[in-house]
């Protein structure tokens, strides 16, 4: 006796249950039906109606497709749901590690007043807009709740260097926790560089901190886009970029991807795209 069932045992019976799917109208009478993992089928409206109302006959050309794409499962067929679960698990595998990027807005203060900035910038002298030690501790707790082996902390603002003492505090605590838990820790500071002192840059070098910087274009454009007291945003950027490369390291200073690989003025300041 064969241990396999005969082919007839796998033939469609026409008795089926719906599996979760959604649909949208394309053009005219044409509909796109998609399931939880993105498998899709194009049918006309009356076929869709028959499918949902369980009137679709096994002899219909779309019946086999609907089974294969896991829009329907024959009565008693447990494999379809299990296969769909497997595909769902694969599709959403990234969720298992949650996120590895955590941004700390250490202050809303900034020495610049760029018109396009998405942050509700506060003036430089308002300490009330700084992240507190208590907030930092709670945020670190959240960072290390992530199951991801790799953890990246990015400091943003405002201008994060305006609250550099807090950056030191967070970095020291994060390094201890990362070492204790066997995590790979990467730290980035997104900065205009305008307030980058030798002491700050040496700290970044000693703690393997990456600097993320950006330039809007040549001097007149950059200074117009990024007004600050002294109207010297560009000049500070260029001077401090040079210092950052020398102290922190050429490859430790990067510019985020832009619309253009070579924005105007790039060669003047000598930055590179990440």
């Amino acid at each position: 006796m064969s241990k396999f069932l005969p082919p007839e045992s796998f033939a469609a019976t026409g008795a089926y249950d719906l599996l979760p799917f959604n649909f949208t109208r394309l053009e005219g009478d044409s509909y796109l039906a998609t399931n939880m993992v993105g498998e899709s089928l194009i049918v006309d409206r009356s076929t869709l109606d028959d499918l949902v109302n369980k009137r679709l006959a096994p002899s219909h050309p779309s019946y086999t497709d609907a089974r294969a794409k896991h829009l329907i499962a024959e009565k008693g067929d447990k494999a379809s749901a299990e296969l769909l679960a497997l595909k769902t698990r694969t599709r959403y595998q990234r969720l298992q590690n949650f996120t590895n990027l955590h941004m700390f807005v250490t202050t809303l203060r900034c020495d610049h007043s760029c018109q396009y900035c998405q942050v509700s910038r506060q003036s430089e002298d308002k300490g009330a807009f700084d992240m507190t030690l208590e907030m930092a501790d709670k945020s670190l707790d959240m960072v290390f709740r992530s199951p991801s082996k790799a953890v990246k902390i990015e400091f943003q603002g405002g201008e994060p260097l305006l609250n550099f003492d807090l950056i030191r505090y967070i970095v020291s605590k994060a390094k201890v926790r990362a070492a204790a838990e066997g995590r790979d820790l990467e730290i980035v500071i997104a900065t205009t560089l305008s307030l980058a002192t030798t002491e700050i840059l040496e700290y970044c070098r000693d703690n393997h901190i990456l600097l993320s910087v950006s330039l809007d274009g040549p001097s007149d454009l950059h200074n117009k886009n990024r007004p600050r007291p002294g109207k010297d945003s560009y000049q500070r950027f260029v001077a401090n970029l040079q210092a950052a490369r020398e102290i922190v390291g050429y490859d430790r200073v990067s510019e985020p991807p832009r619309l253009s690989r070579r924005p105007v003025g790039l060669s003047q300041a000598g930055t590179r795209s990440a």
């Binding site: 249950d17 719906l18 599996l19 979760p20 939880m36 749901a81 299990e82 679960a85 769902t88």
Partner: peptide, 12 residues
Amino acid sequence: TESIRHLILAHA
């Protein structure tokens, strides 16, 4: 399909 959807997600 609500119950089978929950079952699939729980299984996944």
